[in-house]
Simulated scan of single mutants.
Amino acid sequence: MNGLLANAISMGILAWGWANFSTALGVSTWAGFMGTTTYYASGERFIKGWIKGIIANMVGVLWAIICVEASKVLNVPNIAAIMTGVVSFGIVAQARWKRLSFIPGVYIGCSTTFGMLALNGTYFSTVTALLMGSVVGILSDAGGELIVKLTKKKELETALKAEE
């Protein structure tokens, strides 16, 4: 079985599990999927992709906190729009540092925070969902690898029996 199909099977099973598990725990399912999305968008695999995604998402959450909290204390007309511009500038400008260069991952973390706050979530609930979702991403990738290994072993056994 090829890797993409194996990952699809693994992701399908884990997505089903995540939807049930997150709902039972009261964790935002969609925000968790943003963590999974970040893992897959990182362009890296396993621990390297997981760490890259987590760093990006958490920096995005920090940018959202800066935007929201500054908007609360600064009494300036259109402050939310101004802060959105400031934060967007910062997200892209920080990419000159390698560890902070995964711009889509930072935007995912920031946007997920805004979405969660709009739905009466908290910063903590956002971080929790993103982190849990990133685990779903790495587990689905590892599950795909396991499926590939198991099916290749089975294919080899079948081929050997056919030769007998």
Rank of each mutant, 00 (worst) to 15 (best):
M1F: 10
G3A: 14
G3V: 04
L4N: 07
L4D: 13
L5W: 08
S10Y: 02
M11I: 15
L14K: 07
A15Q: 03
W16E: 00
G17H: 04
G17K: 07
G17D: 09
A19I: 13
N20L: 09
N20H: 10
F21Y: 14
F21G: 03
S22N: 09
S22Y: 10
T23F: 02
T23L: 09
A24H: 10
L25M: 15
L25H: 03
G26D: 08
G26I: 03
V27R: 14
S28K: 06
T29M: 06
F33L: 10
M34K: 04
G35A: 08
T37M: 06
T38H: 00
T38V: 12
Y39G: 06
Y40S: 08
S42E: 01
S42F: 02
F46M: 11
F46K: 08
I47H: 08
K48Y: 10
W50H: 13
K52N: 12
K52D: 04
K52L: 08
G53F: 04
I55P: 05
A56L: 09
N57F: 07
N57L: 10
N57D: 08
M58P: 02
M58A: 02
M58N: 03
V59P: 00
V59I: 14
W63K: 00
I65V: 12
I65F: 04
I65A: 11
I66R: 00
C67P: 00
E69S: 02
S71H: 01
K72D: 01
N75G: 06
V76W: 04
V76Q: 11
P77I: 01
P77G: 09
N78R: 11
I79R: 03
A80G: 06
A81M: 08
A81Q: 11
A81W: 01
I82F: 05
M83I: 01
G85W: 00
V87I: 07
S88H: 01
F89S: 08
V92N: 12
A93V: 02
Q94D: 02
R96H: 06
K98I: 07
K98F: 05
L100R: 03
S101C: 03
S101N: 13
S101D: 10
S101M: 06
F102E: 04
F102N: 13
I103N: 07
V106C: 14
Y107N: 02
Y107P: 04
Y107M: 12
Y107E: 06
G109P: 05
G109Y: 05
S111P: 03
S111T: 14
T113W: 01
F114T: 00
A118P: 02
L119T: 13
L119S: 11
L119Y: 11
Y123M: 06
S125Y: 07
T126C: 13
V127S: 08
V127M: 14
T128L: 15
T128Y: 15
L130P: 07
L131R: 02
M132P: 05
S134R: 06
V136P: 11
G137C: 09
I138T: 12
L139T: 11
A142Y: 10
G143I: 04
L146G: 08
L146K: 11
I147S: 08
V148N: 10
K149E: 13
L150Y: 01
T151F: 13
K152H: 15
K153G: 09
K153M: 12
K154V: 13
E155G: 05
E155H: 05
E157I: 12
E157P: 02
A159M: 06
K161F: 03
A162R: 13
E163H: 09
E163I: 14
E164L: 14
